[in-house]
Design a binder for these strands. Structure first.
Lengths: 167, 167
DNA sequence: TAGGTTTGCTTCAAACTTGAACCAAGAGTG
DNA sequence: CACTCTTGGTTCAAGTTTGAAGCAAACCTA
């Protein structure tokens, strides 16, 4: 089977994409590190929890939602816990489980950091793209994400594995 | 100044984008780690060198091209050098400079790993996107990258700071 | 041409990520 | 009920990334 190399258009797109993602992650990380003393992922954890019912989520659900590995989440939550921004509870119905809870302090931190973060995202992306491009970006991202998940992902995503907020 | 939050469309796009980039980098990293025993960035360094004139590039040019920090590049090149895939030369005209050179072994490694890598990229992205979407992805990425570079970037990108291959 | 600034690159410590164990608790099966 | 298999989560060692110094070689500028 002879390799199907990328066409010139595909190469240009791939390189532009790589450059954009590197620059973007760097910029966002720097901004949040400055403003909130934490990298982007850690902020995302807090933000995700802040929107969850009861501000709490099982570790696995959190990891899945953020598309990160579980050890990575464990490490991050451990730090956030040290900082007093999240807490851990054990799950009453499944004693293996552990639940991350956003503390009041954590909530306050999200609210404090959110405007700056949104501003960074907006000025890097949405202030520069037309509404059509925003739609295209979503669609393209969705196609890629879906493609990558169908291999390893849950076959039955519509069925919750854990009870809503468990506690 | 009251914060301009993201619209629902923008939020959806942003989240889809984050998910896609995480999944994609993970997938590419895993594939290359399996096939070539190195993460994506390290492969990119080799690939970039393989296309440079004389297979050599100054550290700073390499870092700029890949949009990574210099300490990160230094670390990576040190490892690749231990593996015998790149070498370092000092620059004759600017004794501060150091030049990374792809060895024959490094070149062979790129050629060995390339087909699998291209296949991974293709099956994750380009086999799933229409030609129009490929164009859109390039355009969107370019807008974002350009926007992020104009702040910190060189004001005179058309002027080479270093001689072409220096050695 | 001395003195101060910038540039190119590396080094260092601290923080983070990875993948492979590991452990305990649920689930399925006889 | 034992016995095994799976699941949820953590731990560990090795590898990587970060940002702040550090260092030496250019580059001013007077």
């Amino acid at each position: 089977m002879t390799t199907r190399w990328l066409t010139p258009e595909e190469q240009r797109a791939w390189r532009a994409y790589m450059a954009a993602t590197h620059l973007l992650e760097d910029a966002i990380d720097r901004q949040l590190q400055q403003d909130a003393g934490m990298p982007h992922l850690y902020y995302s954890i807090l933000a995700t929890l802040s929107e969850a019912p009861e501000r709490r989520l099982r570790m696995t659900d959190l990891a899945e939602g953020l598309k990160i590995t579980r050890p990575r989440l464990t490490y991050a939550v451990t730090r956030l816990e040290k900082d007093g921004l999240v807490g851990r509870e054990s799950c009453r119905w499944d004693k293996r489980g552990s639940i991350a809870v956003l503390t009041d302090e954590g909530m306050a931190e999200v609210e404090r950091a959110a405007p700056g973060h949104v501003e960074a995202v907006r000025s890097a992306i949405f202030d520069r793209l037309s509404p059509e491009q925003v739609g295209q970006l979503e669609e393209i991202s969705r196609v890629i994400a879906d493609g990558l998940q169908e291999d390893t992902g849950d076959e039955v995503p519509w069925r919750r594995r854990s009870s809503p907020s468990c506690s």
